[in-house]
């Protein structure tokens, strides 16, 4: 399947969201599937179902650490994005991929698990939970939205993320510990290599 790859570099979350929405419209109108890479400056995104208890510090204290807080028009709880976390937004037209949300999610998780396997990390997806885990620690967050069967949002892979930022929140409202490829490997991991492998896996799986 023809997939166009774009790398948006470091982009503010809200700006990235606007660009995603524009792209979703184009794909709805017949443009090819797109695979977007980017990173976001440190930001907490709060969904409509965010439990206030998921923020473990006062707003002011969080912003003092250089982390923005942004309300987003989605369900779900709080999520953290920061440099070193590779964001992957597949903008795919599921009308051409079987129109099945479950199959799409399973394929995403498969790509995520295979990706980590290529870097010597054994990860699993857990039934009923979003994301991919190494043992009990979450390494990849997954959050997908669909409009007219075109997908947006996607994966957040902690590659070289500053994991101490996750101490500000209960990620996704859960008492889950986050990990990163850097932590598991004991050294920084090349984002370029992760991107190259990701493109290969998406092209093989979709």
């Amino acid at each position: 399947m023809n997939i166009i790859v774009e790398d948006w570099g470091l982009i503010e979350y809200t700006q990235g969201f606007r660009r995603q929405r524009d792209l979703v419209e184009k794909v709805q109108m017949g443009a090819p599937d797109h695979l977007i890479f980017c990173e976001h400056p440190a930001v907490l995104t709060l969904g409509r179902m965010t439990n206030p208890a998921s923020l473990l510090y006062q707003r002011h204290d969080i912003e003092e650490r250089g982390v923005k807080i942004t309300m987003v028009d989605r369900g779900g709880d709080v999520t953290l994005h920061a440099p070193g976390q590779l964001i992957i937004y597949p903008i795919f037209n599921l009308n051409n991929h079987g129109k099945d949300l479950k199959v799409y999610m399973e394929k995403l998780e498969e790509v995520a698990v295979d990706l980590l396997k290529n870097f010597g990390i054994l990860a699993i997806s857990i039934s009923g939970q979003r994301g991919v885990f190494v043992g009990k620690d979450k390494i990849i967050s997954i959050g997908v939205g669909v409009r007219k069967w075109v997908t947006y949002h996607g994966l957040g892979i902690n590659i070289n993320t500053d994991l101490s930022l996750f101490n500000l929140i209960k990620p996704c409202g859960l008492n889950v510990r986050m990990t990163s490829m850097q932590k598991l490997k004991g050294h920084e991991v090349s984002m370029k290599e992760v991107k190259a492998k990701t493109i290969e896996l998406f092209r093989n799986n979709f």
Partner: peptide, 11 residues
């Protein structure tokens, strides 16, 4: 409106 399953949201 927006519907959510355990893994994704659908507008």
């Amino acid at each position: 409106c927006e519907a959510v399953t355990d893994k994704a949201s659908f507008v």
